[in-house]
């Protein structure tokens, strides 16, 4: 399972980088979305994939019995998803405004501030 997830994560990274290298700013944002998802899946996978073993502590015990899924990785991803959502919402509005101001969906025409 882990090796399959590794392939998926690698594919997402590759797709994200490819999209970010395009000139269109819409594709740029799609690349950022994919990049965030790739990072989240990476955390999920590196925490170890354990199926059907929720980390519940039995009544009276101090720690759960046997091997359980790691809840921390999932908590991290949840936080990262929320943050990523907020940031991407901003990015979408930004490219919309930039498109209105510049009048083009093309990074090559946004060079006024470069030197």
């Amino acid at each position: 399972m882990e090796s399959m997830m590794a392939l998926v994560v690698g594919g997402l990274y590759a797709a994200a980088i490819y999209m970010m290298l395009r000139r269109s700013i819409v594709k740029l944002v799609i690349g950022l979305v994919l990049l965030g998802n790739a990072a989240n899946l990476l955390i999920f996978t590196s925490g170890g994939l354990t199926r059907g073993a929720p980390p519940l502590v039995p009544d009276g015990a101090a720690m759960p019995a046997g091997a359980v899924a790691d809840p921390l990785a999932q908590a991290l991803i949840l936080t990262a998803i929320v943050i990523g959502f907020g940031v991407l919402a901003f990015a979408v509005v930004l490219i919309h405004r930039a498109y209105e101001v510049v009048g083009a969906d093309d990074m090559d025409r946004m060079k006024d501030t470069d030197t």
């Binding site: 994200a16 990072a39 955390i43 999920f44 590196s46 925490g47 991290l76």
Partner: peptide, 14 residues
């Protein structure tokens, strides 16, 4: 940020 997050994931896994 995405690289930072990836590094965190790998570090946590290790």
């Amino acid at each position: 940020s995405a690289l930072f997050l990836s590094a965190i994931g790998l570090l946590y896994g290790m």
